[in-house]
């Protein structure tokens, strides 16, 4: 039962207010993409032990989608940010580096 801060409402949300949306920062591949590209987009997920970026929706609140960076082992939440971006904000990446030196997740580190 996580608590995540909704970056739109600015409030700490109980997990019962939220809907999970799986992994964040996927790149969509449509018609014209190769089988490997499409498979990667549709099915391949990180499932890491440690730093992870995921999508959440404040479904029983403002209805907005946002991203959360957290540690899947310790449940530590590094930060949340609006979903209208293709990569984690630099400041958040710095915060994670301070807490988890040498972390990497997909192409980010």
């Amino acid at each position: 039962m996580l608590i995540l801060d909704c970056p739109y409402c600015g409030i700490a949300c109980d997990e019962t207010e939220l809907s999970p949306g799986g992994e964040a920062h996927l790149t969509r591949f449509g018609p014209g993409s190769s089988e490997d590209e499409f498979e990667g987009y549709l099915f391949m997920r990180e499932n890491p032990r440690g730093v992870h970026f995921e999508r959440w929706r404040h479904a029983h609140g403002c209805g907005k989608w946002f991203h959360a960076a957290r540690d899947t082992m310790t449940m530590e939440v590094f930060g949340t940010y609006p979903a209208q971006t293709t990569e984690p904000p630099a400041e958040l990446r710095k915060t994670i580096s301070e807490k988890r030196p040498g972390w990497s997740w997909r192409d980010f580190s």
Partner: peptide, 13 residues
């Protein structure tokens, strides 16, 4: 409705 919101907010914002 949620499906539409998801695509509008997270892909074609």
């Amino acid at each position: 409705h949620a499906h539409m919101e998801e695509w509008l907010q997270t892909e074609w914002w």
